[in-house]
């Protein structure tokens, strides 16, 4: 069963494992989230669950949103996100999803908005190699030729060039859950996570690495 939860990215750190290895971890504040809407094929044409995260004062919301929260009996929240679920999840309206839906050792995918880089050149944006820094080279970070000659006499669509880079959603797959702290709603995952510290992250069970049979996943 796939799980989904909203959270905030915390700082990165290092931990020692029992066998003495040092592993990189990212602290994530995850949930608790309240189910504020359950969409079904009959009413909406698809099956999804809407989660609310981070309670805020009612005055900060628009009236329609306040009404939406009132209807479900949940406290007003800053963030609403929806996830398509495989019908088995069976979350009811008002149910609370906490970080302990995940357990130590399983793998998760974490999505976030990566840091904005503004206008970036082709080396940073597309990983072009550039040219050597020395030995008489007159340019270092330029893209080089962008096409052929009088045939086709144009630049192909989709040609990788300089431009705006970053501030888009990105998912890091298969991060191992190192620890789960239900009391403080903290998840520790191994490795880096997209986005700023404090950025919104969406954590779900790893798509390509299902949990071992018999375990939650």
């Amino acid at each position: 069963m796939a799980h989904f939860i909203l959270g905030r990215k915390g700082r990165m750190a290092q931990l020692f494992t029992e066998d003495g290895r040092c592993i990189p971890v990212t602290v994530l504040e995850a949930g608790p989230c309240t189910v504020t809407q359950v969409k079904s094929v009959e009413s909406d044409g698809y099956v999804a669950v809407q989660l609310a995260y981070e309670p805020i004062r009612e005055q900060l919301l628009t009236k329609p949103l306040v009404g939406h929260f009132k209807k479900t009996g949940s406290v007003p929240c800053r963030i609403l996100r929806e996830t398509i679920v495989d019908g088995a999840q069976g979350l009811a309206l008002g149910a609370v999803v906490a970080c302990d839906v995940f357990e130590k050792g399983q793998f998760v995918d974490v999505a976030g908005i990566i840091k904005g880089r503004g206008t970036a050149g082709v080396m940073k944006r597309h990983g072009f190699k550039g040219r050597p820094a020395s030995h008489g080279h007159m340019c270092q970070r330029r893209p080089g030729s962008i096409g052929m000659h009088s045939e086709p006499a144009r630049v192909f669509k989709g040609k990788k060039m300089a431009g705006h880079y970053g501030a888009t959603r990105q998912t890091t797959q298969n991060l191992e859950v190192i620890s789960v702290d239900r009391e403080r709603n903290l998840l520790l995952v191994k490795g880096a996570v997209p986005g700023h510290i404090g950025g919104l992250v969406m954590i779900r069970s790893a798509k390509k690495r299902p949990a071992v049979a018999g375990k939650k996943g």
Binding site: G10, R11, A13, Q14, L15, F16, V27, L186, L188
Partner: peptide, 12 residues
Amino acid sequence: MNKHDDVVNKAL
């Protein structure tokens, strides 16, 4: 003092 210092300090 950062927010999640105590989590990090578990490694000490």
